[in-house]
Design a protein around this nucleic acid. Sequence first.
DNA 1: TCAAGCTTGATGCAATTGCATTGATAGGCT
DNA 2: AGCCTATCAATGCAATTGCATCAAGCTTGA
Lengths: 152, 152
Amino acid sequence: MKKPSDTVVRAWARLTKAQHLALTAVEQALKQADLPPLSWYDALLELERVGEEGLRPFELEREMLLAQYNLSRLVDRIEKAGYVERRTCEDDGRGQVIVITATGKDVRRRMWPVYARAIQSTIGGQISEKQAETLDAILGSLLATSAAKTTP
Amino acid sequence: MKKPSDTVVRAWARLTKAQHLALTAVEQALKQADLPPLSWYDALLELERVGEEGLRPFELEREMLLAQYNLSRLVDRIEKAGYVERRTCEDDGRGQVIVITATGKDVRRRMWPVYARAIQSTIGGQISEKQAETLDAILGSLLATSAAKTTP
DNA sequence: TCAAGCTTGATGCAATTGCATTGATAGGCT
DNA sequence: AGCCTATCAATGCAATTGCATCAAGCTTGA
């Protein structure tokens, strides 16, 4: 395994820094608007996408790149807030199905503008559309192969 | 404030995902090698750079984008491990100066190859050098302006 | 069939992070 | 000097995350 070039190392450092700044901005904006944290949004979005069907915890876990115990507890919290429902799974006695509620959909919708504004001000506003396209493309190819490595 | 374009939103999502994957890989690699977490590396590196002079906690705090209480406790832990020393600050009775120890330098040096390998396999190995340069440049311009917004 | 092993999901406990507040000193202003 | 505000750092407490393990149900294969 070759050592990373200086460019790669610097890109990594900046990747982390940029993500950290943007993330902090998003979380702060949400909190300030009395809305749940970003992870709730991610979960609710996935669940809204699949609709009444719902998702199994382990599916959501993989979508969100979360550790199993971490997802389990995230769902606990969101359920307690009434934004999702845990239903017993017909096909698998061990499992369950998580379904978003009407309130959950509503909250997700209310989160979006706040979230969007924070993204725009930390990312969109700082680079050109052209740069955003390039950034997106490069990160896309970066993820294309490494996504397969989640199960080594 | 305009809404972010779809491209920006997707770039943001990928930014987060890529960073998360790489970070996880790095942390895992360090743990597996029985080495301290990445945040220790960052702190030790900054402290090694400035040498005997040391850094004030608040300086390190800004370098690392950490919350004040968070840095305070990080230093607690690193100090307890014997990798840094807290000295009383001559110039400012409230403050202190943090200086890396010889052991600290040694640990930092031993962390680097593990860290580097993880970066290479999650970033360097996935994209071309040319792409890495572009990525670095775009993130650089992204950070150029937003860095100023840390103190609103 | 049924034991061995795998998958799904939860949970006790420790470590870390976030939040709010505090204690102490510095620096400016009158 | 004396007071007021700002800065520097620590800390009590709650929430979250990480780690290890567990219980329960599925699957496989002799």
